[in-house]
């Protein structure tokens, strides 16, 4: 299988701080690849860099063999590289259905003329949207404003929105954050179903449980660097990972939180 997404020494710096340094990852088509790391490890920065929301300082990324440098987030999304946001970023004035459709439909310069004549015409992506809603059990909420939904439901809508776009690769940024264990397990089983629809997934989370249980291949990020990679078994046994996750003393945790705060530009 060929690599769908590959990064070569990807580095992102904010001033003197390296949020990501020399990150090399490879996402293969049809596999579920995971990226884990403690809070503040630079996971979201990595997604931002790949999807064009943050400038890359050095190194590069390739998607389907094409260099990503210079293309806008919108262009990357249209080429099949779609992401979700940890902070959801739903379109709150739109219904759940419209949130999915706006993501999925392709528009042309003359679309507005068609709107004037037939605003509610079929746009040809309804099937995909229906499937995404059904898969995540959101069909009943179709006509509700996302504003009115609970946090868990909003979380699922953000995943459904990503799926509706029929992406080549969907980057899921912390989809399990804020879900309870049962919901988290349900989500995990959905992810396998998604893979069967020819959508490759890249799962970013700090929750070891979910990532280790569903992923085929895992990268571990800490302080902006890849400290380990391998199958779930290999990662579970890796001493670096155990240290990063379990062996932290209180002092180290504080230092880590400090780094996260600095990265977010706090005081």
């Amino acid at each position: 299988m060929s690599a769908l997404l590959e990064t070569y020494d990807l580095t992102v710096s904010y001033g003197g701080l390296h949020a990501n340094s020399n990150v090399n990852i490879k996402v293969e088509k049809g596999k579920l690849t995971g990226l884990i790391g403690p809070n503040g490890a630079g996971k979201t920065t990595f997604i931002d860099a790949i999807t064009g929301f943050t400038n890359v300082s050095s190194g590069r990324a390739e998607f389907c063999g094409q260099d990503l440098v210079g293309s806008s987030p919108a262009e990357r999304s249209r080429s099949g590289l779609v992401r979700t946001f940890q902070s959801l970023e739903l379109f709150e004035d739109l219904t759940v259905w419209d949130n999915l459709i706006v993501m999925a439909e392709t528009t042309h310069w003359w679309s507005f003329l068609a709107d004037i004549i037939r605003p509610r015409r079929k746009v040809g992506v309804e099937d995909q949207a229906e499937w995404a809603l059904e898969l995540l059990g959101l069909t009943d909420l179709k006509d509700r404003l996302t504003l009115d939904l609970s946090h868990g439901q909003r979380k699922l809508v953000s995943v459904a929105r990503g799926l509706a776009a029929r992406p080549e690769l969907l980057l899921l940024d912390e989809p399990a954050a804020g879900l309870d264990t049962v919901e988290s397990q349900q989500l995990g089983s959905h992810l396998r179903e998604i893979l069967n629809r020819d959508i490759t997934l890249f799962l970013i989370d700090h929750d070891m449980g979910l990532v280790l249980s569903v992923c085929d291949y895992i990268y571990v990020l800490d302080f902006g660097k890849i400290i380990a990679e391998g199958t779930p078994e290999e990662v579970r046994k890796n001493p670096e990972v155990i240290k990063a996750y379990l062996g932290e003393t209180a002092g180290e945790i504080q230092a880590q939180e400090g780094a996260a705060a600095r990265q977010q530009g706090g005081i």
Partner: peptide, 18 residues
């Protein structure tokens, strides 16, 4: 209209929606 409201709601997310 969907695109307009998407841009109004969140320009980042709108860009990520292509």
């Amino acid at each position: 209209g969907r695109r307009f409201l998407a841009v109004r709601a969140n320009e980042r997310a709108a860009a990520s929606a292509g």
